[in-house]
């Protein structure tokens, strides 16, 4: 049981960063970014490339990869998505437009990666020695990745809750119009949140690549799981996303080891359906007005 719990928490830890990235993008910038998983895959290949050509440790590699993803996502928001925000007459239209546009981005990114790396599976050896915790063996790389993810999540939490700009971003998440009235630069905060979300996802990708076999077209599956986590945790709720991610990681691991590894997605959906039917506002969300 302990093994399931710890393996589940490690998996959930990586899910958490992607989901937090996504919840920032959707909660603040109001863009349902279905291409977010591609940030993760790009980062996997980036970390792989840094490690195999420059011998840069993937955990340190995050320091290079995350800023690159930040800039890339900032540009995507400003040039591709802001025009959609500006032309949308209502929230529903923006939702449809951003879903379709980010599907476009998703396929383009996948296409580029397929051309660059082919459709094959990649992995590499980094800290793949065992470590014993409470009598069971785990890959050291997994534990290091979890530690790094926890560190990043904590830093983000401090930023959002204890800095001026972080508070401004949370204000935009609650009410963009009111935030604009108190002299918060809403377009800039939106772009910042979108870019930050992309950077977080990339960071999780770099960490994931140390212990996970990846390929060019796996992004969608991660996007989907992240979306489900975001909804479970409550849209825009960082704390909820982290808890939901851990819950999903543990559930998946439990189903995979106790029932059948071929049914992980079914487990994800089972959780999703329960949330949709009984708490569509999220596990920690208040009842909508």
């Amino acid at each position: 049981m302990m093994e399931i719990l710890i393996t589940g928490i490690v998996l959930g830890g990586t899910y958490a960063l992607i989901a937090v990235g996504l919840t920032l993008q959707y909660g603040v910038a109001r863009i349902m970014n279905l291409a977010n998983g591609e940030n993760l895959v790009f980062a996997c290949f980036g970390a792989f490339w840094l490690w195999s050509t420059l011998a840069i440790n993937p955990v340190l590699g995050v320091i290079f990869i995350a800023p690159v993803a930040f800039v890339l996502n900032w540009l995507i928001y400003v040039y591709a998505l802001r025009p959609l925000v500006n032309r949308a007459r209502n929230r529903g239209q923006l939702e449809v437009d951003s879903i379709l546009a980010t599907f476009g981005l998703m396929f383009i990114a996948q296409g580029v990666m397929l051309l660059g790396f082919g459709g094959g599976y990649y992995n590499y050896n980094f800290l793949s020695e065992p470590i014993t915790i409470l009598g069971a063996n785990y890959g050291l790389n997994r534990i290091v990745a979890l530690g790094a993810a926890a560190f990043i999540a904590a830093a983000l939490y401090l930023f959002l809750n204890h800095t001026r700009y972080g508070t401004a971003i949370r204000a935009v998440a609650v009410d963009p119009t009111a935030a604009g009235l108190v002299a918060i630069d809403v377009p800039r905060a939106s772009a910042f949140a979108f870019a930050l979300g992309g950077a977080l996802t990339a960071a999780s990708g770099a960490l994931l690549s140390t212990f996970y076999t990846f390929n060019a077209s796996m992004g969608t599956l991660f996007t989907m799981k992240a979306l489900i986590i975001v909804i479970m945790g409550g849209v825009g709720d960082v704390r909820g996303a982290v808890i939901a991610a851990l819950l999903l990681g543990i559930t998946e691991t439990a189903v995979a080891s106790l029932i059948d590894p071929g049914l992980t997605l079914a487990a994800t959906y089972a959780l999703f359906i329960l949330v949709l039917l009984f708490r569509p506002q999220g596990i920690f969300g208040r009842h909508p007005a």
Binding site: P83, L100, G104, L105, F107, A109, S217
Partner: peptide
Amino acid sequence: PNHTSLVIGIAFMAVVY
């Protein structure tokens, strides 16, 4: 055959924009 994803991606963008 390796460019099908790109074509679909570009088609999505074309429809939206």
